[in-house]
Design a protein around this nucleic acid. Structure first.
Lengths: 138, 138
DNA sequence: CTCCGTGCAAAAGGTTTGCACTGGT
DNA sequence: ACCAGTGCAAACCTTTTGCACGGAG
């Protein structure tokens, strides 16, 4: 997989991807580090961050939650949804009645009590779509 | 609104909430600070964080994105959804074919090019539901 | 008048960067 | 052998905490 993208296959990349692929709990960079530091004596946390970031930029791995991992606040507490620009991180509200009618997938996770949901659309905002390539992310 | 919750009505709380309510771009704490520091000479960033956190805990304001503001990674890049426990922050995968059939709300945002979407369900996991009150968040 | 709320400064994470060295190719 | 990738340490940035003062109720 690394080869396909022209990346050197290092033991760190292999171990980190194997660890991440083996779990479904969406670990943080630190959790990955904790999990592999025994198998890979001497790995640095820096490498974990760098490798994960590399994977993300090649689409091998996905980042859950907002790209910048900063807290964002919203005074509108009614059910509504969001559209996030993959390029610049802009977040816009999406109000759509149809999207508020989803039935909760109660059958899926036994024991989990559902309270609410929110849909996050990803894509490219007008500005980034027209100015593609001219502006860096963030 | 502050009164309703037994909170003192301070000029800081009023200004911060007014600023947040006036915009729909889901600002970060820092963006709020930048926006109000001129109207409110001498306000500290600490206060912005504290006031926002207070509002969140009273349900007046919502936090967009993950509660801990840490980056989380996922090796599964196919379309799937997540359920987040409001109490302990646990994130679980939700695989459900029906949820993958949403039609994009193309009409909503002119110019926005939709690529994909992901639904985030919030609620309480089995553990926190049974142990409610015994364990603190995180 | 009494506390809650604020400001300041410093600490506490999480994440990024500069630089020299090492291991893939 | 060359250069991408790694490790280390320090920098950076966001968020939290301790403490003393001041203003809301």
């Amino acid at each position: 997989m690394c080869r396909e993208h022209g990346l050197a296959l290092t033991i760190q990349r292999r171990t980190i991807l194997e660890e991440l692929a083996a779990r479904t709990d969406h670990p943080t960079a630190d959790q990955i580090y904790e999990a592999i530091k025994d198998l890979l004596k001497g790995v640095s946390k820096t490498t974990v961050y760098r490798v994960l970031e590399t994977f993300v930029s090649f689409g091998i791995v996905r980042k859950v939650s907002n790209p910048e991992a900063k807290a964002r606040f919203d005074a509108d507490t009614s059910r509504h949804h969001h559209a996030t620009c993959l390029h610049c991180g802009l977040v816009m509200d999406v109000h759509d009645q149809d999207l508020n009618k989803l039935k909760f997938p109660v059958h899926i996770v036994n024991g989990f009590e559902f309270v609410d949901y929110s849909i996050n659309f990803t894509g490219l905002c007008t500005h980034c779509r027209t100015a593609r390539g001219n502006v860096g992310p963030r």
